[in-house]
Design a protein around this nucleic acid. Structure first.
Lengths: 344, 344
DNA sequence: TTGTAAGCGTTATCAC
DNA sequence: GTGATAACGCTTACAA
């Protein structure tokens, strides 16, 4: 079932079979028929491993994300796909499952030629911690060039600032989210962040703090809680907030996922949203609109982020210099029913 | 940056470098040091393409799913990962994006040796429709053996019944879900299915119809609506149901995703859940519990499905005969607050 | 313990 | 248009 057997079967050389496979227009009609027949007969399937090896490329792009199952990625992937199809790339996805080694393993795939490029959607903080093979894979390269990597959504650390990225202005958007609550008249506004080392949410936290400062409002002790980017984490964080002496009248959650957790916990305490407490999220994942009440949030143009990220990667894989500037795409405040003026 | 340059740098043969890489214990301490030094100096990274090609295996397992962003996959992947780590496999994920070619492309990767095995979580109906390369990849094999494929979650078509699968008893579980509504006293119970060709939800529909029949209840015209497996599809389906003369007092949704859409639509009509209409879902994805009211549903043991699926695949890749019997894992009815006795 | 050398299945570069 | 044939980078007998 190798090209060789097909050649024998068809009574031609292996070169001809290869040509038939790669550029049939360079093969005479009559020969083409013979070869196709031989292929059908032998049930041949070209060994992609050998092919990729020989060609030195795979036409595969690896998308690294923290976990499939995050609804936000649906849109981003759709955008990536649209471009990938157009440009002739296949997409392979890998999960870090929130751990360090996860990423390193996949970063190496570009280096070891198993993929032509990488799109990083996962949180990138993990692999800054050690100096393992993977992190260095992103730093150095034998010939000093930068490997084809584009970072999507995430905020970029200084260490990785030589990689291009596509994302919203997290600080500005967070500022706008907090600003919306302030505009409604809230003064006691809490923030639920991700983990303490999450870059993404630390930018959003910065925006929150900036908005508070602009408005001359204090950020009281305990008003910033870690929600671990999870529903349960957000519930715990909310529990803390509700127990506070100066209980906030509004909570800004760094992700919609956590906002859903917060809402659940608030209801469990017999409080009303937005009557007793207003909630605003971030991402506009599809479950934000079906929440009860529907969640006010900051929408990221997920599909657009996916498209632009992939487009930029394609240029990098083609060998173009795409620079390292982050591309900022527009966010949008989506007003729904989970925010309202405070009661008093 | 090939093994050859490292060999030259270290003053040894390429065989020694290769040995160092694969079984360092067979290399003298002193030589080991020399080689390691040369590797560091050259910044060498072994070309996995060449390696896999030569070895004829990749230690890679491909997980095919319809689309990233489905919260239900989180748990399944966690289970798959646990086993993969233990058995020394890496996981690569691919999306069909709900189209046929998507699957074919990836199915071929096993055939073409880029992955050692496949786990199919995606709906498998698409690739039954044509006789393309991919579908045949799952059917025939040069030497007549069955390629290492295990199907997770999904119901298996007769055409694919020679492949092993791991899943819940969809019919039985659906019967229980509908039965729960019947036990509560509901008589007008509707069902929101996926697409008409979705195997998964057609089994659930069968369970629903069986339960109704058992109870001697009719399934009136219009009580079974297609929800396209999406929130919006479910909203449309619900709109149809609410407009019905004999408006149902309870709706069984074939997935939690659709249940959230249905709930949203019901609330938009100013109706109460479960006061006016009871809702029950299927899957117990993580947003089911945070819905308002929390969603009564059928829980699938996602993590367990992932584990068992991967375990079985590992045995298949090892060459063991794993048979083709579907393995049925237990489901569980999770009572929350979206179901209650009918008003009257 | 190390080196030599024969492949693995393709693609690509030549002649013809 | 087609056919030899030399790579590609690595693993693995087999020899030394």
């Amino acid at each position: 079932m190798s090209i060789k057997q097909v050649a024998k079967e068809a009574g031609v050389s292996i070169a001809t079979v290869s040509r038939y496979l790669n550029s049939p227009e360079h093969v005479r009609e009559k020969t083409r028929l013979k070869v196709q027949e031989a292929i059908d007969k032998t049930g041949f399937s070209r060994n992609a491993l050998a092919r990729n090896f020989r060609r030195g490329k795979t036409s595969l792009v690896m998308v690294v994300l923290s976990a499939v199952g995050d609804p936000f990625f649906s849109g981003v992937m759709r955008g990536i796909w649209r471009v990938a199809r157009r440009e002739g790339y296949s997409i392979l996805i890998s999960e870090t499952q929130f751990n360090t080694t996860g990423f390193n393993e996949y970063a190496d795939m570009v280096f070891s030629k198993q993929a032509d490029g990488i799109i990083l959607l996962a949180s990138i903080s993990p692999f800054m911690r050690d100096g393992g093979a993977g992190s260095s894979a992103l730093e150095r390269r034998a010939d000093g060039t930068v490997p084809p990597v584009v970072i999507g959504c995430e905020t970029v650390t200084p260490e990785l600032s030589h990689f291009p990225s596509v994302r919203v202005d997290n600080i500005g958007a967070a500022r706008e989210a907090a600003g919306h609550l302030i505009d409604l008249g809230h003064k006691r506004i809490a923030f639920i962040s991700g983990a303490h080392d999450s870059l993404l949410t630390s930018d959003r936290e910065r925006g929150y703090r900036a908005a508070m400062e602009d408005a001359g409002l204090p950020v009281a002790e305990g008003w910033v809680q870690e929600g671990q980017l999870s529903i349960d984490g957000a519930r715990r964080a909310t529990r803390e907030l509700l127990a506070l002496e100066s209980r906030p009248s509004a909570i800004f959650c760094a992700t919609d996922e956590m906002a859903l957790g917060a809402m659940h916990e608030i209801r469990a305490h017999g409080l009303e949203i937005p009557g007793d407490i207003s909630i605003i999220g971030f991402d506009d994942m599809r479950y934000a609109a079906t929440a009860s009440p529907p969640l006010t949030t900051i929408a990221q143009p997920a599909e657009e982020i996916g498209e632009h990220t992939m487009e930029r990667l394609c240029r990098a894989m083609r060998g173009d210099d795409i620079g390292a500037e982050p591309e900022v795409v527009p966010h949008r405040l989506v007003l729904r029913s989970s925010t309202a003026p405070p009661r008093e």
